[in-house]
Amino acid sequence: MALLERVPQLAPAATSSAEAPAPIAPVAIEETGLTQAFIADLVLKILYQKGQATAAELADVICLPLPKILQGILEFLKTEHLVEVKGSSGMAAATYVYVIATKGQERAREAFAKNGYVGAAPVTLAAYVNRVRAQTIGSLQVTFDEIRKALTHLVLPEKTLRQLGPAINSGRSIFLFGPPGTGKSSIAETLATMLRGSIVLPYAILVGQQLIRVFDPSRHRPLVALDARFDRRWVPVARPFVEVGGELTLEDLDLTFDENSKVHEAPFQMKASGGVLLIDDFGRQRASPEMLLNRWIVPLDRDVDFLTLSDGRKIEVPFDVLLVFATNRTPSSLVDEAFLRRIQYKIEV
């Protein structure tokens, strides 16, 4: 059974550009894409673990509006004798303290048997796809002067700088190669800082009854705490930079299913969506370069990726990432020409 995952709390901030990509808060259950039963089970799982919580605390964890949506769920649970009001620290409904009833404990255990997810309510797959398309990396453009300024900490020939511009603006894939110590990894990391604007990522996605965790505190940098005007199931983050090296396997490029929590973890390329994914030391992974690049053929050609759920179903998600391969070896020594043609920009550093 998963431990309670409380949504990270950030200091309130004034309206900023970081909030711009965030969807407006839903005003009805139908607008969440979730069912009343799903949200009710999420509430019961929280109370089962915490013992008790105020309505406001429940809203903070689930990230759904209290007056418009969650209050109705709590009234339903109370009517069904699944929760009880233990007391209140004030007159407002937000201060009511809820505890789980015996009948509610039974239903919570049934909900945990389905999955151990406890946290922000998920968004639908369709909502995720639409949001990624709306904030695509392909719409960004950087200038030569911006590239030169961003890479002043590295000694690079002007030819390399001029090659990087079109490569970044393509939003596709880049092959950086050259001897050790020439700054290939540093270039890739700097590319992410040049991608202007912020994006929003969901804490989790619901596909049927399957859950996929997307937001990763170790990979994503939150920028601002959304206020009640916005759908707080989404997190405004800086465009991600995700780096993987020799530890990368083919299995890491698909959904990872936790048998205990029954929750999927998004793969690296999905966590890097809207930003940069660096495959460092390419050619030193446990899977061969041919196998890894074969995995990328469809995403590189069609800008979509196909992932497999634990029940065998395939889902289609956008492949919206600047994919950077960095290696000490020449591209031709790693893969054949047919693969290399799919990587449009090959830059020697």
Rank of each mutant, 00 (worst) to 15 (best):
T79Y: 03
A326D: 00
S261E: 07
P12E: 14
I343L: 15
D301M: 14
V335H: 01
V224T: 08
A120E: 04
A108R: 01
I174R: 04
L74Q: 13
E80D: 12
F282A: 02
V27S: 11
P217M: 12
I343K: 08
A108F: 03
G119W: 07
S173G: 14
T330Y: 15
D336V: 05
R131A: 13
L70N: 10
F241L: 14
E106A: 14
K149C: 08
E243Q: 11
S17K: 15
F306M: 12
P166Y: 11
T136Q: 10
T124R: 01
D301E: 07
H153V: 06
S218W: 08
L340F: 06
E189M: 13
A225T: 07
S89V: 08
G183S: 04
Y96L: 14
L250D: 00
V99A: 14
A40I: 13
I69S: 01
K346P: 00
E75V: 11
L307W: 08
R213L: 12
L74S: 05
V123R: 00
E110S: 10
L292H: 03
C63T: 14
E75S: 15
R342T: 01
S332N: 08
D227V: 09
S288R: 03
M194P: 02
T190I: 08
R148T: 12
R133A: 11
A266E: 10
L340K: 05
Q269P: 02
A25M: 06
E146I: 04
C63K: 10
G87C: 09
A338M: 05
F282R: 06
L277Y: 07
G245A: 15
L255D: 03
L82P: 02
R229Q: 14
A94P: 00
R239Y: 10
Q210L: 08
V155C: 14
A192W: 04
D336A: 03
E106I: 06
K114T: 12
D41I: 05
S261M: 03
R329E: 15
V304M: 05
A126I: 09
E290N: 04
V43S: 04
G171I: 01
